[in-house]
Design a protein around this nucleic acid. Structure first.
Length: 634
RNA sequence: GCUGGUGUGGCUCAGGGGUAGAGCAGCGCACUCGUAAUGCGCAGGUCGACAGUUCGAAUCUGUCCACCAGCUCCA
């Protein structure tokens, strides 16, 4: 007998050799039915894994990230199997599980198109029906090379694994065998609802010098209803696309004359300015001052900061009076120079200087995407200068500030810690210390996070904040980067209590990330229906006929004087037409006025949230909207 | 940047080697209306740019530009 410790801490005596699946069955048939994979002592494994000694185990159903991963990974194998049945000459490369499904890359004489997908889906459904057991086995590298003798991509992978001294793990389902580390489902039968979503090109190893393969993306669920819900979410996302809404609501424009350089239209500017008012209010409360630094600075500065060595491919350069200059891709060097404009005492620290800095970065033309990925954007940046002893508390302060910022919009988030990349400045020891500081700060306030190894900035490790919007999609916005390098390079100093100069530590941080991207996210999150405090037009007046135009104009003046963004629709159109249009423009309040309202000095309120908002006096309506805006209600 | 696709009035789109089409929006007129589209009329485009083929190109070919889906990258 062995002792098995379950996730909840309880223990169970089992016979040695019992498999995870049998354990799940023992815990409950429903759990066993829903189980996708499991873990033994923290290692993710198949349900077929036998338990041979005392251990800690976990069972993953589809509702867990690990369970979904195994499910989708198995689905990708089913995809490859179906393709090989239909196209026996196909060369197959790799096929992992990804965020919302899976893909598989193939080398085809004729690349797949959308028309090929239904046929492949049908073949996949057949494989699922066959309920083929999925079983792991191992081979020597030579035998594996022999098995995949007509599969050059698999051969390359086998050789790579063999060279690294790794075992060659394979999975078999029916006639299909793939090189794979797993874990996988026990058989193909649970993959009942499948949708192949697209066929595109993708480079082998993601390297544009290598051959382009034909990639099929798909997703799969245990139940048709769950797949339908996911597909409905994709449809909804399409309707909320900020590029479409940005045009319809006249928020911003992207023109041929400036690819990747967005134009903000009057409506978009209202959203932006109100967002920034809020941002300034919060930063003031958290003890930040605000600065502005130049967009064009000389190249010597960029050499000193290290950007020239690590970032010049993304930088625009220019000449000023024969001198070499660059357009800033980041705000930090400017912030350094501001710090150096005077002597600092330890009493000044921590010094928090924020900057809404317009940066320009040359992104590849194919990477541009609406407001989400542009070549010029405004970062809500800040640099915090402090003593090493203040690091933890400052990081906590930043996390709390970000929490407040995001909650205002109803955006949930999760945090990732990105560690030292290959291309970095400074010694590893300093990096590890900085990583530990970030980690300890989060742990001390009970924040959970995941680690993203090797993904830090070239000057320091960072925390990335990934926001979750109304559709459950994630967006990277906030970032907190701890930097020991830049203060060194710029020889920053403060005078400590001992009267001697010391080097401060610095935090770079941006909460909204990029104002442009954040507005894009808000557009999609709210589906263009901004909360009243952000709405470009807060109230639309709809006089029923010409007889009411004069009254409507008086009301307009009253609302305008009360600071409400109001428009009076006096066009020669029917009321229903005007209401429909205001509704499509997602105006929070539509005020209809006819004889009754004119007589009683009232307005008939039609709120976006509830169609019949009742009849209110003009004063009551003003008070209501003012309160809603003052509280920045969602 | 690479692979594939797209580019026709402000917007959404049809057409397609023989002298530019619709709906919406805009403008004018009539209607004066009670909670999601009143009717009639008018105006608006050298069909992304540049070359080429042709008697003739928006339509065919080439190059370029922009956009879209991916790859890659990231705020």
């Amino acid at each position: 007998m062995i002792t098995v410790t379950l996730k909840d801490g309880s223990t169970k005596q089992c016979e040695a050799g019992m498999t995870l699946y049998e354990l799940a069955l023992d815990l409950g048939p429903r759990l066993a039915k829903a189980a996708c994979a499991g873990s033994v002592n923290g290692e993710n494994v198949d349900l077929r894994t036998a338990l041979t000694e005392d251990c800690t185990v976990e069972i993953f159903t589809f509702d867990t990230p690990e369970g979904k991963h195994a499910f989708w990974h198995s689905a990708s194998h089913v995809l490859a199997q179906a393709v090989l049945r239909l196209f026996p000459g196909a060369k197959f490369a790799i096929g992992p599980a990804i965020a919302n499904g899976f893909y598989y890359d193939f080398d085809m004489d004729t690349p797949f198109t959308a028309e090929d997908l239904p046929m492949i889906e049908e073949e996949m459904a057949r494989i699922v029906k066959e309920a083929l057991p999925i079983e792991q086995f191992h081979l020597s590298a030579n035998k594996a090379l022999e098995l995949f003798k007509n599969q050059p991509y698999k051969q390359e992978l086998i050789q790579k694994h063999a060279a690294a001294g790794e075992a060659i793990s394979l999975y078999r389902q029916g006639e299909f065998t793939d090189l794979c580390a797993g874990p996988h489902l026990m058989d193909t039968s649970p993959i009942r609802a499948i949708k192949l979503t697209s066929a595109t090109g993708a480079y082998w190893h993601g390297d544009s010098r290598l051959p382009m393969l034909s990639r099929i993306y798909g997703t799969a669920y245990p139940k048709q209803g769950e797949l339908d819900a996911y597909l409905a979410m994709l449809e909804e996302a399409k309707k909320r696309d900020h590029r479409k809404l940005g045009k319809e609501l006249e928020l911003f424009a992207l023109l041929d004359e400036g690819p990747g350089f967005p134009f903000f239209l009057p409506n978009g500017m209202v959203v932006r300015n109100n967002l920034l008012d809020y941002w300034r209010e919060v930063h003031h409360r958290y003890g930040y001052s605000e600065i502005a630094t130049p967009i064009v600075l000389n190249q010597e500065l960029w050499h000193r900061s290290g950007h020239w060595d690590h970032y010049k491919n993304n930088m625009y350069t220019t000449k000023v009076d024969e001198g070499d200059y660059a357009i800033k891709p980041m705000n930090c060097p400017g912030g350094m120079l501001v710090y150096k404009t005077k002597m600092h005492s330890y009493r000044d620290l921590p010094l928090r200087m924020a900057e809404l800095g317009l940066v320009h970065r040359h992104e590849m033309s194919g990477a541009l995407h609406g407001l989400m990925r542009v070549r010029a954007f405004t970062q809500d940046d800040a640099h915090i200068f402090m003593t090493p002893a203040q690091i933890k508390e400052e990081i906590i302060g930043v996390i709390n500030l970000f929490d407040e910022l995001y909650s205002r919009f109803g955006l949930a988030y999760n945090i990732e810690l990105s560690t030292m990349p290959d291309d970095h400045m400074g010694d590893e020891a300093v990096w590890r210390m900085a990583e530990a500081d970030l980690q300890e700060a989060m742990e001390s306030i009970g924040r959970t996070f995941t680690v993203n190894p090797g993904d830090g900035a070239f000057y320091g490790p960072k925390l990335d904040f990934h926001l979750l919007d109304a559709l459950g999609r994630t967006w990277q916005c906030g970032t907190v980067q701890l930097d020991f390098q830049m203060p060194e390079r710029f020889e920053l100093e403060y005078i400590a209590e001992d009267g001697k100069p010391h080097r401060p530590v610095m935090i770079h941080r941006a909460g909204l990330g990029s104002i442009e991207r954040f507005i894009g996210i808000l557009i999609e999150h709210f589906a263009g229906a901004f909360p009243t405090w952000l709405a470009p037009v807060q109230a639309k007046l709809v006089p029923i006929s010409e007889a009411h135009h004069e009254y409507a104009e008086r009301v307009r003046q009253q609302l305008d004087a009360a600071g409400i963004r109001v428009e009076n629709d006096t066009r020669n159109e029917k009321m229903n037409y005007k209401i429909r249009e205001a509704q499509l423009k997602k105006v929070p309040y539509i005020l209809v006025m006819g004889d009754k309202e004119m007589e009683a000095n009232t307005v008939a309120v039609r709120a976006r949230k509830e169609a019949n908002g009742g009849v209110k006096s003009v004063d009551d309506f003003i008070a209501m909207v003012q309160a809603e805006v003052a509280n920045r209600e969602l």
